[in-house]
Design a protein around this nucleic acid. Structure first.
Lengths: 244, 244
DNA sequence: CGAACCCTTGATGGCGATCAAACGCCGTGG
DNA sequence: CCACGGCGTTTGATCGCCATCAAGGGTTCG
């Protein structure tokens, strides 16, 4: 099976997983606890591919022939409605994507594009489904990842339904800070227009929302965010203790 | 283990699963293909409970001790933000709910209440997790249900981000019609205010949206919906071929 | 019969989208 | 090296969708 044919183009960055690369991939959460023999058989049938930035990996509606696992780089999952489109998830290294489609053998509900140069492991979906049934650890890991993705979607939907845009931004920033161990200063990954789309707003309003948060303990300089008054920030954002 | 203690109240409708009820439950999609011995051991440890309508089953943040499976009735999953709340999912008979929380052993992200008198099977979460690892069919069924729930969430989120309220209503009605085999006339389940909350709008605007759809081939009489001009309806709603 | 409660309809206001223009940054090409 | 053009961001002005507030009609239930 050729990935080039699957993608409809030829890239010289396509190759089978090399032996020296396997340990790095094997440490990913989804594979780390599984049986070594089965893991090797998955790796032998998988392909590690490097993609340039801004490349569309697949479109909505295609069949999910491969589970995608982002080894490094950055990937955006997005959907469109004809005229308008919106980004749904930002995939960070070490995470799989379109797991639900690969497991149920159904068409993608989201399209994917690389935001930066990315290396992606492509695991044939039928092999994944077979191996899941033979290996309890892989099974658990897959289930957990899927459950986690589900919870992220629940959170994004409640965010969209219950909060207005500036509150969404505030909570997003607090969450980013928390994920970096409570850092008061950090960098946004990617352009602001991407963040705007992720939060369900326009770039113009994101800009205004950043301005409004200056009153609540946030300073912005380009892509670097500083939380100057965490108390004020939390008072404005009212993060949910179970979600955020 | 007492469900009454778990719920913090005593109801005379609590009992272990009776032998004559097992065949009915065993036909549910999640159990239908699994090993009979394991299924019986699950049933022996589970409880079938009847709840009156408008009862809150659990709140956000509680630990997921049981997987819930709705045998009959109607259940709403909802979240709140302190002052405001919104309904996230309507659970119909034959489906499990809070599967993600039960599998990952994490707190509920959504609360649940019965919309009508409901019978619910309560499966201890640890037993579920153990049995999933022993039974491939249950494993597959669980994974599929979880993946399906995920896809429903993706759909709801894109709906909220890309469409305005009247379009969401129109597509919801078309989808209901499709799920009933293309019926041109059907009944809404539950009150309209519930539908409004599910679609992320106020009851007032839902009413106005129904009025606006009169121009596009919809007639409403109480809870009965008639699609009088399907072409016009689809022209207005522009359903996505992969989502809707 | 009255009291809730839901649904509807109208009036008003606010949040956020759209349109428009200017600024800064960075690439290329003269 | 500088001029130019493209693109992302910012800021301002305006418009539209939708929430809110308010009131009236219908139904259900005590």
């Amino acid at each position: 099976m050729s990935i080039s044919r699957y993608l409809g183009l030829t890239l010289n960055t396509e190759y089978d997983l090399r032996p020296e690369e396997r340990p790095e991939i094997a440490r990913l959460p989804i594979f780390s606890d599984m049986d070594e023999t089965l893991r090797d058989s998955i790796f032998s049938a998988s392909l590690l591919q490097a993609f340039p930035r801004q490349l569309v990996l697949f479109e909505v509606g295609q069949r999910a022939d491969f589970l995608h696992i982002l080894v490094d780089g950055l990937v955006e999952l997005f959907t469109s409605n004809g005229d308008r489109d919106t980004s749904m998830v930002i995939v960070t290294p070490g995470h799989s994507f379109i797991l639900a489609a690969a497991i149920t053998d159904m068409p993608y509900l989201m399209a994917a594009r690389t935001l930066s140069t990315s290396r992606i492991l492509l695991v044939p979906a039928p092999l994944l489904r077979d191996t899941i049934e033979q290996d309890g650890a892989l099974n658990r890991a897959t289930m957990h990842e899927l459950a986690w993705d589900y919870r992220e979607m629940v959170r994004a939907l409640t965010d969209m339904k219950l909060r207005q845009s500036t509150e969404r931004l505030a909570n997003h920033l607090l969450l980013q800070s928390r994920r970096l161990g409570g850092a008061d200063c950090f960098q946004l990954r990617g352009e602001k227009r991407l963040l705007a789309s992720l939060l369900g707003m326009t770039p113009e309003n994101l800009s205004r929302a950043f301005g409004a948060l200056a009153q609540h303990g946030i300073r912005v300089d380009g892509l670097t965010i500083s939380i100057t008054d965490r108390k004020a920030m939390e008072g404005f954002a009212r993060p949910d203790p179970f979600f955020d």
